[in-house]
């Protein structure tokens, strides 16, 4: 990393070690949303914050290599569609919109609570992608002064 973009070497090194752990923690929060405090939204924000840290430390170019803005937007839409499909599947499999059609399982196990973990994953995708896309849009807008199409 010879280029002068981003912050100092100390920050960059720390972030390099920290970012995977932060992402892991976010995924943990998403997957355990039905058991412990947290869930799709907080976990998604934590995952997005890891990418935001990368952007702050290394500059937009490096972060964009890891996660393109179009990819983030794609993940966001996919998450939302996934959530909607789960809800509509409830009509066919459970008889009601949003009905919990999967077996409930034992309480307090990781694989329990029917489709709630799946819904959490969908929300996590949506929020993680969405917040990072918003952040990138705002940052790129300031740098380029043009082309930041911000919608959501």
């Amino acid at each position: 990393m010879k280029d002068n973009k981003g912050m100092t070497l100390i920050v960059k090194t720390v972030i390099k070690f920290l970012a995977p752990i932060v992402i892991l923690f976010g995924v943990y929060i998403i997957l355990h949303g039905h058991l412990t405090p947290g869930g799709g939204f907080p976990g998604g924000v934590v995952v997005a914050s890891a990418f935001i840290l990368l952007t702050l430390a290394y500059g937009t170019e490096v972060a964009e290599k890891k996660m393109k803005r179009s990819l983030a937007a794609l993940l966001e839409s996919t998450g939302a569609l996934f959530f909607l499909i789960l809800a509509v599947l409830g009509i066919f499999l459970g008889g009601w919109f949003f009905s919990n059609f999967l077996p409930k399982g034992e309480p307090l196990k990781l694989l329990s609570a029917g489709f709630i973990p799946l819904a959490n994953i969908a929300i996590g995708l949506k929020v993680g992608g969405g917040i990072f896309a918003v952040f990138l849009a705002l940052v790129i807008f300031r740098v380029a002064g043009e082309g930041g199409e911000e919608q959501k």
Binding site: V134, L138, F141, G148, E150
Partner: peptide, 11 residues
């Protein structure tokens, strides 16, 4: 969501 929108409006 509305904060992101209003900030981008400000910019």
């Amino acid at each position: 969501a509305s904060l992101a929108l209003i900030i981008s409006l400000c910019m």
